[in-house]
Simulated assay, not measured.
Amino acid sequence: MDLSKKLIAGLMLSACVLALGLAGCGGQKAAGPAKETVLKVGSDTAYAPFEFQDEKSKEYVGFDMDLIQAIGKQIGAKVEVQSMNFDGLIPALEAGNIDAAISAMTITEERAQKVNFSKPYYKSGLTIVVKSDNNVIKGFKDLEGKKIAVQIGTTGADEAKKVKDAQIREFNTAPEAFMELKAGGVDAVINDRPVNDYYIKEAGGKDAKQVGDPLTSEDYGIAVAKKNTELAEKINKAIDELKKNGEFDKIYQKWFGTKS
């Protein structure tokens, strides 16, 4: 190779290094920053104290919201919450529109045929709420022939439909069911006990009261698509770690006043 060719080759090599830096001279692209993992989570965000929108900040808050954020941090994912009606959560999982659903969802055999559930993270039960001056309804048997408000797609709705001659009014959210009770449109509401507790607490016990013993004992779980066993395993591991390091109890105590 003569001097001129060596000079040209050297100039080409210098230009290549300057243009592509660490990427090299072969059309290879420089490696960019690792893409952030996003966990798309669906929730019915009108179900205090589990998930609801803060009036001031407009952020989604509640026990479930704190828990899923902690789980996301544990598995190294950014959590993005999508608000949707409760009865649309499982279809959204099946369609792949969301990765997980956390919404005070009771683990049932019927639902477990469609989705994978995490291990239980909360134990609940259904209770009856009536107006404070109602002394007729004292338990489940007294609901026969009465008007009952429920949230659509919930186990409360399923239980209400078992009541003989009852007139069932289904609403998209729990607050709507309570508003109907307050307005006198129904005689009772059947819903999860912690949600009923929170409603009565916020109302100062003036508008409503709970009657009778819990109708059921229920476990809440986080749902993922049936085929997404890997994510279900990661969530279960995260729940175990959060319980072990005390973070779960901190979140629980924040919203319910006691340790889990």
Rank of each mutant, 00 (worst) to 15 (best):
N85L: 14
K227V: 14
Y47R: 10
G246M: 05
D87K: 10
S217Y: 11
T258K: 14
T106M: 07
G88W: 05
G221M: 02
T108E: 04
K58L: 15
D44F: 11
G153S: 15
V17C: 11
F117S: 03
F178T: 10
L7E: 12
K182P: 06
D240E: 12
I75N: 01
E109M: 01
G156C: 08
G257C: 09
Q113T: 11
K131S: 14
D192W: 10
K254Y: 05
S83G: 09
T45E: 07
I251E: 07
D249Y: 06
W255P: 08
I75W: 01
E180Y: 12
E170W: 02
A225C: 09
F256V: 08
S14E: 02
A149G: 09
L89Y: 01
C25A: 10
A188S: 11
I98Q: 00
L231R: 03
D158I: 12
N134D: 15
S83A: 05
K58F: 15
G212K: 06
N228K: 03
G96R: 04
A34I: 13
E241T: 15
E110C: 03
G76K: 00
C16E: 08
F248P: 02
E80S: 06
L11N: 07
T173R: 03
F50Q: 08
F86C: 01
E51H: 08
V224N: 06
E144P: 01
K29Q: 13
V79M: 03
T127K: 13
A160G: 06
E218R: 00
A77M: 01
E180G: 03
F50D: 08
V163H: 03
I235M: 02
K119E: 15
L126R: 00
V163F: 05
F63D: 06
R169A: 14
I137P: 07
V186H: 04
E202D: 14
A149Q: 02
I90S: 04
N135W: 01
I190T: 10
P120K: 02
K162T: 14
A183G: 10
V17N: 12
D99E: 06
K123D: 13
K182V: 15
S260W: 11
V129W: 03
G156Q: 07
D240K: 10
A95D: 15
T258F: 10
N196V: 12
G76A: 08
